[in-house]
């Protein structure tokens, strides 16, 4: 019974044999619009992905690659101590953000946290929001006004509702839990 395996767990790159089908018919394997130039394609794709990365970085003033907040911006990033365990896995905590983790374990209040994101926290009144938690909605609401004065200048380039709501909210995930989710802002309205 425990042998039940419908997938070997890594669908994208393996398990060709599990598919219930014959080998591809040669006629179905074809190039439709000429052979692509791989170098050019690679360059374009990297470029596009970099643009997306940068746009995200700008939007959240956070360097997702290095897991580090970027100083000036709409959001102030702070560690929280009550993020769900799921977000605290090793892949989310690069070496430089360990202090936050440690603090979280000690149960120190978020406002008192020291951590790699402290510099950005120092400039503004402390806020804590832990997204991805069920109780985050109320807290998000209570924090709303604090950020109301934040520069929303770039609102114009955002798409409607959800992102506007995000702006109004101080989204303060931190290094342990940097998967901001739209759910909390969204549910407010």
């Amino acid at each position: 019974m425990s042998d039940v395996r419908l997938s070997n767990g890594s669908p994208p790159l393996e398990r060709m044999e599990a598919r219930v089908s014959d080998f591809p018919k040669p006629s179905a394997c074809r190039v439709l619009f000429g052979m692509p130039n791989h170098e050019e394609l690679q360059r374009e794709l990297s470029e596009r992905l970099r643009e997306i990365e940068e746009a995200k970085s700008d939007k959240w003033n956070f360097d997702f690659a290095a897991h580090r907040p970027l100083p000036p911006g709409r959001y102030k990033w702070e560690p929280v101590d009550d993020a769900p365990e799921f977000y605290g896995g090793p892949r989310c905590t690069p070496a430089d953000s360990r202090p936050a983790d440690a603090a979280a374990e000690n149960g120190v209040d978020v406002n008192g946290h020291g951590g790699s994101v402290q510099e950005s926290a120092g400039a503004r009144p402390p806020e804590h929001i832990s997204e991805g938690q069920t109780d985050c909605k109320e807290r998000a609401t209570s924090q709303k006004r604090k950020r109301a004065s934040a520069d929303c200048s770039s609102q114009k380039k955002r798409s409607r509702n959800s992102s506007d709501e995000v702006i109004r909210n101080p989204v303060v995930p931190h290094s342990v839990e940097n998967t901001p989710r739209k759910s909390s802002p969204k549910t407010q309205t």
């Binding site: 669908p11 790159l13 398990r15 219930v20 591809p24 394997c29």
Partner: peptide
């Protein structure tokens, strides 16, 4: 059981 990237590439 989703299609794999490899298989799709074979079809191209």
């Amino acid at each position: 059981i989703p299609l794999t990237a490899e298989k799709l590439c074979i079809y191209t």
